[in-house]
């Protein structure tokens, strides 16, 4: 961001920063990377030049797990991560299906310091040596198909769907597709485009930015904006380093985090609107289900059982005897009601 650059230049007060860190991301994600660049610049400004963070986008510092391990070791101080449960055991709480559905809800659920998902995810990151600073949202997940428009769960019948190794999403799809003959296949992300093009699979889940930027719309006929999941990338730093910082620097980082998060959500919301128009013009048949139709899918997903299977054991271990699963679900319901009331 050129605007951010000038801020840095004018803020050159102290000649040599006390802390020089690296921020790594494995991905090429235009909008998110702009927000991260701003975040790094803001840290410099708000810390009065005492912390300087160099941003390495597009996998320059390596793959996702590579940067993650380096963050744990402290050789790369900060990064943006997807908290897959193999590397972050509590990570499934970041993206349980059918919870957060809009940017308004996300702002309340994921925001530091009081958002309920922020609190549990920070705990989840603490367990693996990370400190959660803020989250960046690509937005809602939908379902793409090459066979037919997906209006009810029965439209899944007989299709072959690509899934990743995210167990929560897999369980959710299993439940929604129960009795329809839907089969799920793990295919590496890098092979998804060719697999859809050649018909190895008929279906996948996707997001507005992935449809456009990763060109999934070229190889998909139908897309249902189901919003059955919410994407949130976690911006995290090494925990030990965080704990060793004086409070004023911690404040500076969290202030930068807050600003970056706001900018990021705004930018993604705008980009998603642009992408929707672009995709409609490009000939992708987009279906926006009604509230009733979404309720049918949601019912089928049988989320309470998935919470019980995947989340409760971890939550019980870290919040013993507090019935945390129910507390989170209640709080998410409260947020949903609050946003609905404010919107209506």
């Amino acid at each position: 961001a050129p605007a951010a650059k000038t801020i840095t230049e004018t803020a050159t007060v102290t000649p040599e920063p006390e802390y020089k860190w690296r921020f790594g991301t494995p991905w090429t994600q235009k909008t998110r990377n702009e927000s991260i660049a701003l975040f790094c610049d803001l840290i410099y400004v708000y810390s009065n030049g005492r912390i300087k963070v160099d941003f390495y986008p597009d996998g320059l510092l390596g793959s996702h797990t590579e940067i993650f391990h380096a963050m744990q070791e402290g050789t790369i101080e900060m990064g943006v991560f997807a908290p897959y449960v193999d590397i972050v055991p509590g990570g499934m709480l970041n993206w349980m299906n059918w919870t957060v559905e809009t940017y308004e809800e996300a702002a309340l659920a994921y925001s530091p310091p009081d958002g309920i998902l922020y609190k549990v995810m920070d705990k989840a990151w603490e367990e693996v040596g990370g400190k959660l600073l803020w989250s960046s949202y690509f937005g809602p997940y939908g379902l793409g198909s090459n066979v037919r428009p997906l209006i009810t769960p029965d439209d899944l019948r007989g299709q072959k769907m690509r899934v990743s190794a995210s167990l929560g999403y897999v369980r959710c799809m299993e439940n929604m597709g129960k009795g329809t003959g839907l089969t799920l296949h793990t295919i590496p992300w890098a092979e998804l485009y060719s697999a859809l093009e050649r018909g190895v699979v008929d279906m996948c889940w996707s997001l507005w930015p992935s449809l456009v930027e990763e060109r999934h719309y070229e190889v998909l006929k139908y897309y249902t904006a189901l919003g059955f999941g919410w994407d949130a990338g976690n911006i995290v730093m090494n925990r030990e380093l965080w704990n060793g910082l004086p409070p004023d620097l911690q404040d500076a980082i969290m202030r930068a985090a807050k600003d970056a998060e706001l900018r990021d959500a705004e930018a993604h919301r705008r980009v998603n609107t642009e992408y929707k128009h672009f995709l409609a013009e490009a000939g992708l048949q987009i279906y926006y289900p009604t509230a009733e139709e979404r309720a049918v899918w949601r019912e089928r997903a049988n989320m309470p059982a998935i919470w019980e299977e995947l989340c409760t054991p971890w939550l019980e271990k870290h919040y013993p005897g507090q019935n945390m699963t129910q507390k989170i679900l209640d709080e998410l319901d409260r947020i949903k009601a609050y946003v609905a009331a404010a919107g209506g």
Binding site: H69, Q72, E73, Y84, V85, D86, P89, A165, L167
Partner: peptide
């Protein structure tokens, strides 16, 4: 060796193969 120590400190279980410690 350090890489190994970190791996032992933070076990990473497979998501779909949940008994497998990476």
């Amino acid at each position: 060796y350090q890489f190994m120590l970190r791996a032992m400190k933070y076990p990473e279980y497979g998501t779909l193969v949940r008994w497998f410690n990476m």
